[in-house]
Design a protein around this nucleic acid. Structure first.
Lengths: 237, 237
DNA sequence: ACCTGAACACCGTTCAAGT
DNA sequence: ACCTGAACACCGTTCAAGT
């Protein structure tokens, strides 16, 4: 493929002037990750996707790590496109913010796994962050605690969604193998793990997304309860 | 180093019979990850650490991925060494389980980040899993919901701890850079992000570990509340 | 100013050969 | 039965050269 031949594969033309831009490179990276998975995200393949040389990307990003950071940013931008906080509905706003992250991460699992450890609170999308703080205040959380609960919501959305994405990325076969490991493990010692054994039927039917939703509801219920306590003047602790 | 010289570095001796075992290899991997970080965890360096050839590990693990799985398992084994559920204290038991995962992951951050996406509920340590289910029952959660809450606790412990580890792994410099990005971002548009701006002072002082603890308390508060509702026969909704 | 392509150091893995 | 070492295909990155 590197030696030009007289017939067959035409030698790739040189790319025109500003053919490559950071945006185009990030878009191509995301598409590559979505369609081919984590292992396919290499500079040679990215170059091929772009119709460019393997090293052309280095004219726009200092390193692959830098590119990953930009992909992570794109993910959050996509998550909060068109976002507007719900009016007079603090709980709806918080649910919306968390669901947006979850949906975006799960639909770009490979990119999400890459981004996961690289994103902390606030790489992007200040608007959503500001809305979370506003919602907590609207709920009636006293100011000193707002920052703490803000972090709870932000970390929940990002860390838990990243975890879901990680699970998604495993081959179906591996996921299946893990479930089997489980099943056989307590089948061999059913009386030693009686508690587990008796709920094993229920356990199989639970989807990871449902667990995410449940955890979020539990967190919001507690936040609502604390706000109510604060409003009736019963303090915190 | 591959060409034997007459003086200087003595040529490494051939390893004796059963010098390499899966256990020893996992221990060396964990040490390498702890001391040198994620990037240093390569087969050549692992081989050197073991005093063996670069490819010797393949006699005990089918692939590097297989080795990673074993390291992940070791992490959970370490986390639940000496674990016993607290008697008559369901909440204490759940806190203990979650803290053990957190402590182990944060003290082996590189290994935890590797393991993170590879571990789902129950790769190891059935005893802790069984104790979680037992604690939820002791709390008074009705059986159909126990499985769901079990997953909430298990996923919380593993996913959130994995996230903390990911954060730990970033160079201090990068962490600092991210905080600065933050600060400058809302400094440029303070009135557009008024909510955020007004809590920025509090935000800086919050540790990720504290956020973990707070989230756990919120989850447990809600679980306790649901159990209380179930006991007084008000159902679940 | 931006893209190319040869080159370098490195990695995971295979396999025939040693002991 | 287990360890070695040459070898292969591949990767991230650099740099002089092209246009």
């Amino acid at each position: 493929m590197s030696t030009p031949k007289a017939s067959g594969e035409a030698r790739r033309r040189r790319l025109p002037r500003g053919a490559l831009t950071p945006e185009r490179i990030v878009t191509a990276s995301l598409a590559l990750l979505d369609e081919q998975g984590l292992a396919a995200f290499t500079m040679p393949r990215l170059g091929r996707t772009l119709g460019a040389d393997q090293t052309a990307v280095y004219r726009h990003f200092a390193s692959k790590d830098d590119l990953v950071l930009a992909v992570a940013d794109r993910l959050l931008t996509e998550a909060f496109e068109d976002f507007e906080p719900a009016v007079d509905d603090w709980r709806g706003t918080l649910v919306d913010v968390c669901q947006r992250v979850r949906t975006t991460y799960v639909s770009h699992p490979a990119a999400a796994v890459l981004s996961g450890p690289r994103i902390t609170t606030g790489s992007s999308e200040m608007k959503a962050a500001d809305a979370v703080v506003g919602a907590l205040r609207a709920a009636g959380i006293p100011d000193p605690e707002v920052a703490l609960y803000y972090r709870v919501i932000a970390d929940f959305a990002l860390l838990w969604s990243g975890g879901l994405a990680g699970f998604r990325i495993l081959d179906e076969s591996i996921q299946e193998a893990e479930r089997t490991t489980w099943a056989t493990a307590y089948a061999t010692a059913p009386d030693q793990f009686g508690n587990l054994h008796s709920i094993s039927g229920d356990l199989d039917r639970i989807e990871s997304e449902q667990v995410f939703d449940t955890a979020l509801e539990l967190l919001l219920d507690s936040i609502a309860a604390r706000a109510a306590r604060a409003r009736t003047g019963r303090g915190t602790a």
